[in-house]
């Protein structure tokens, strides 16, 4: 009974999956066509094939992987430190009024300072060492994680908390079974923002003050007018951004399977 309809449905499924990639693919093809036809000067905008060639070249010498690796390490270290502190403080302020009174005003004040404006100060403090990058990434990641964790805890359904209390759950049990799962959707929102800010901060920091990493690679390429490498670096940023997004989506689908809004379509 289902077999005559199976093929269209399969095709339909494949089409659904391909649709999001149509636009990027079209842009790349158009770009390549324009370059090949000589409409775009390769001095300013290399053809996609040139970018791929540059990637192949850098990949073979190992330069690309070394830079990618060091950037990833920096990003994750900064994320772990800033995200960890933000999460802990968000929990503390969401659960304890005293902690909230003490720290929230300060955090809100500091939050309005663009963290990248601290770059000159950070270079004075730490030079162009690893600490500078770690500090900036951690600072950038801290705020979205903090704010969304706090908001998540505050917005947990009070009726569920009352139910937990009435049913005699201990404070720890109440936290693990009611408060934390209730705050999780909001915490994931913070995670997504934080991942975006993590790359942004790192690339800016590496562009301005570093001697290795993707940002440094792009800056070096600019000095030698290697436009293809500059564009390659930008394409890699886009790829990393997409990767982070896919990972968060997967985490959300796994952890929030109970929520109809996150169920796999």
């Amino acid at each position: 009974m289902a077999s005559p309809r199976l093929l269209p449905r399969l095709l339909d499924g494949t089409t659904q999956r391909l649709v999001p990639w149509l636009l990027p693919l079209g842009i790349v093809l158009g770009w390549q066509a324009a370059s090949s036809a000589g409409l775009v000067s390769t001095r300013f905008m290399p053809a996609p094939l040139d970018v791929i060639a540059a990637g192949w070249q850098l990949g073979r010498t190992g330069e690309l992987w070394a830079n990618l690796w060091i950037s990833t390490l920096r990003a994750l270290a900064g994320f772990a430190v800033g995200g960890g502190i933000g999460f802990a403080l968000g929990l503390a302020n969401g659960l304890s009024r005293a902690s909230d009174r003490l720290t929230d005003t300060t955090v809100q004040m500091v939050r309005n300072v663009p963290h990248l404006s601290l770059i000159p100060l950070v270079i004075l403090w730490f030079g162009i060492g690893e600490e500078a990058k770690l500090f900036l990434v951690a600072l950038g990641v801290f705020f979205p994680v903090y704010a969304n964790t706090l908001h998540g805890i505050r917005s947990v359904d009070p009726q569920l908390v009352e139910m937990g209390r009435v049913y005699g759950l201990s404070s720890w049990s109440l936290f693990i079974r009611v408060v934390l799962p209730g705050a999780l959707p909001s915490i994931f929102v913070g995670l997504r923002y934080a991942l975006g800010i993590m790359w942004l901060t790192l690339i800016v920091a590496e562009t301005i003050s570093a001697s290795s990493g993707l940002g440094y690679m792009a800056m070096q390429a600019r000095e030698f007018m290697l436009v293809d490498v500059v564009v390659l670096a930008i394409v890699i940023y886009a790829g990393l951004g997409k990767l982070a997004d896919v990972l968060t989506r997967w985490l959300e689908r796994t952890c929030l399977a109970w929520n109809p809004a996150y169920r796999t379509v």
Binding site: Q159, L160, E162, M163, G164, V166, Y167, G168, L169, S170, S173, R177, V178, P181, G182, L184, L256, W258, N259
Partner: peptide
Amino acid sequence: PPKRIMFQEPRLLPWAKVVDNVAVGLGE
């Protein structure tokens, strides 16, 4: 024996399976 209440709303934990929601009534 304990005292229990049933509210106007079910107040189930949306992130716990049905059986785990019932087990909440047993505490630890």
